Deep mutational scan, measured.
Amino acid sequence: KTVHVDGVEYRFNNPEEADKFVKRLVKEKNGNVEVRGDTYHVE
């Protein structure tokens, strides 16, 4: 899984860790998540 945040790319081998990371980011930023294939885009 890959997570894109503000143009920075984070790669996770463990999908659960990627999910936790995304949830935390969305809370912090009050942002939205767009999923494209295996990539999460957080804005």
Rank of each mutant, 00 (worst) to 15 (best):
E34S: 12
H4Y: 15
N13H: 07
V33Q: 04
V3T: 00
F12S: 01
N32S: 12
Y10P: 00
R24N: 13
V35K: 08
E9T: 11
Y10G: 01
K20C: 15
G37K: 05
D19V: 08
D19S: 04
R11W: 13
T2P: 02
V22T: 04
R36S: 11
E43G: 10
H4V: 15
E9F: 07
P15W: 13
N14K: 03
G37I: 12
N30D: 10
V33T: 04
F12A: 01
D19L: 15
H41T: 10
N13K: 09
E17K: 02
V22W: 05
K29A: 10
P15C: 15
E28V: 05
P15A: 13
K23H: 08
A18M: 05
E43T: 15
V5F: 11
V22R: 04
H41R: 05
V35H: 04
G31W: 14
T39V: 11
E28Q: 06
D6V: 01
V42M: 07
F21V: 02
F12C: 04
R24Y: 14
V42P: 05
E9Q: 06
V35R: 05
G37F: 12
E9Y: 09
V42L: 06
E16S: 05
H4F: 15
V42W: 09
V33K: 04
E43S: 14
V22H: 03
V26Q: 12
G37N: 07
V3F: 02
Y10D: 00
E16Y: 05
V33H: 03
T39C: 14
E9N: 02
G31E: 07
H41S: 09
K27T: 09
K29I: 11
V5T: 00
V35T: 06
A18T: 01
E43C: 15
Y40W: 11
G7W: 00
V42A: 07
V42G: 10
F12T: 00
G37R: 05
N13Q: 09
R11A: 07
V35A: 05
Y10C: 08
V35P: 03
R24D: 15
D38V: 02
G37V: 13
H41G: 06
F12L: 00
E9K: 04
R36N: 10
D6I: 01
E17H: 02
V5K: 01
G31M: 14
V3D: 00
K23C: 15
R24F: 11
E9R: 05
H41F: 15
E17P: 00
P15I: 11
G7N: 03
E34A: 08
K23D: 14
E17W: 01
E34D: 09
D6H: 05
V8W: 03
F21G: 02
K27A: 14
N13E: 14
R36C: 14
V33C: 07
V3G: 01
Y10W: 02
R24E: 14
D38Q: 05
F21R: 00
D19C: 15
F21T: 02
Y40K: 07
V8F: 03
N32I: 14
K29R: 09
N13I: 05
V33R: 02
Y10F: 06
D38L: 03
G37D: 10
R11D: 03
Y10V: 03
L25G: 02
E43D: 11
E34R: 06
V33G: 05
G37H: 10
R24V: 08
V35L: 11
K29E: 09
E43N: 12
E43F: 15
G31Q: 07
F21L: 02
V33L: 10
E43A: 12
V22G: 04
K27F: 09
T2Q: 02
D19H: 07
V35I: 13
E28T: 05
G37T: 10
V5C: 14
K27P: 03
K29M: 13
Y10I: 06
R11T: 12
H4S: 12
V5E: 00
N13T: 11
L25C: 02
N14P: 00
K29Q: 12
V35C: 13
R36H: 09
G7I: 00
V26R: 08
R36I: 12
V8H: 08
T2H: 04
H41I: 14
D6F: 06
T2G: 01
G7E: 01
Y40L: 12
V42H: 05
E16K: 04
D38R: 00
K23Y: 03
E28P: 03
H4L: 14
R11H: 14
T2R: 04
R24P: 04
G7L: 01
A18H: 01
Y10M: 04
A18P: 01
T2C: 13
K29Y: 14
E28A: 04
E17C: 13
D19P: 02
